[in-house]
Design a protein around this nucleic acid. Structure first.
Ligand code: ZN
Ligand code: ZN
Ligand code: ZN
Ligand code: ZN
Lengths: 164, 164
DNA sequence: TGCGCAACTGTTATGTAATAACATAATTCA
DNA sequence: TGAATTATGTTATTACATAACAGTTGCGCA
């Protein structure tokens, strides 16, 4: 990220080590099985790369790192991203054109499922935090216009605790 | 927009006629003057096109319609869009890669200035409504993590009153 | 068992969105 | 006027995402 700052960016709050990643992959496989969906190789590889990252990851970074040698073809990865998002395993961050693993398990809804979430996005270190969203006030605001909300994108840009 | 619906999409709540557009352009010129900024030809033309549209407009639609004959060059339009956004005259809709005129004047803050806003985006007819945002609850949520919010993107997708 | 369908992947090509880099022109102000 | 600043013109490139179709895999059922 922009390094117009003197502090380091090693405060990887959500970084998972290899064991952590494998644990999350196992959960994901279980979820897919429970839903009658298939956790295929490209899907798992895509999720693995995103889990290994401590910040939202660009689709083309996944593409570039997909194979030990050489890149994947874009449709391979974009299809996997679409699937993972539908399963509620990852979220797309619209304002960054990037994808991040769902952190819902840190808030209790332990069985991932598609959901709207709010994100705190640090403009200095690039890390993101998923926070639970109070849809109520937005729904009420919308209802006042007769609008029926299906899905909410809420992304707050600013500075995380470590970067201020 | 997707026309998997039988109703028409002519409920143009925010559509401005030629006089309305000119009035808004005049306000914009006044605002720029007051701020010591210059409302140049490409900036005004870009704003005119966005005001004339009754829904968020893609950058490349502005580019295509910029000249009566032939298109503008992308940097011309992207620079104008950046300026207009900084002036608070338009908003970027992240989830659509599109731009819409600020409707703040319909809510009273009559002197446009850069601000976070919330949008209700109809997935059927494509129209958008800008609603005032209660930043409070988001700020509090962020503060609990020590996060300092600078700017908020809030986009609710769903169906407007006329499209349900 | 192997046929037939549905879901998924591979591959090529293309479409869409945005910016880098540098040259030229207009505006401001001393 | 002339230098500094701001804005535009222009060419090229980079970044992001999907269309279209061929081939493969998994799976239920005759
Ligand atoms: Zn989540
Ligand atoms: Zn940070
Ligand atoms: Zn506004
Ligand atoms: Zn609608």
């Amino acid at each position: 990220m922009s390094t117009a700052c003197d502090h380091d960016h090693d405060h990887h709050d959500h970084h998972l080590d290899a064991h952590g990643v494998e644990a999350r992959l196992a959960e994901a496989r279980k979820l897919c099985e429970a839903q009658g969906e298939r956790m295929t190789a490209p899907r798992q590889r895509t999720l693995e790369l995103i889990l290994s990252q401590n910040a939202p990851m660009k689709a083309y970074d996944v593409i570039d790192r997909f194979h030990p040698d050489g890149a994947a073809k874009p449709p391979t990865v974009y299809r996997a991203l679409g699937f993972l998002e539908q399963m509620g395993l990852i979220h797309r961050i619209e304002s960054l054109n990037a994808f991040v693993a769902c952190q819902g398990h840190e808030h209790d809804h332990d069985h991932p499922e598609p959901h709207s979430a709010a994100f705190l996005l640090c403009e200095c270190c690039g890390q993101s935090e998923e926070v639970m969203l109070d849809l109520g006030s937005i729904d009420r605001k919308a209802a006042a216009s007769g609008f029926k909300v299906r899905r909410i994108t809420l992304e707050a840009k600013g500075l995380c605790k470590a970067c201020q």
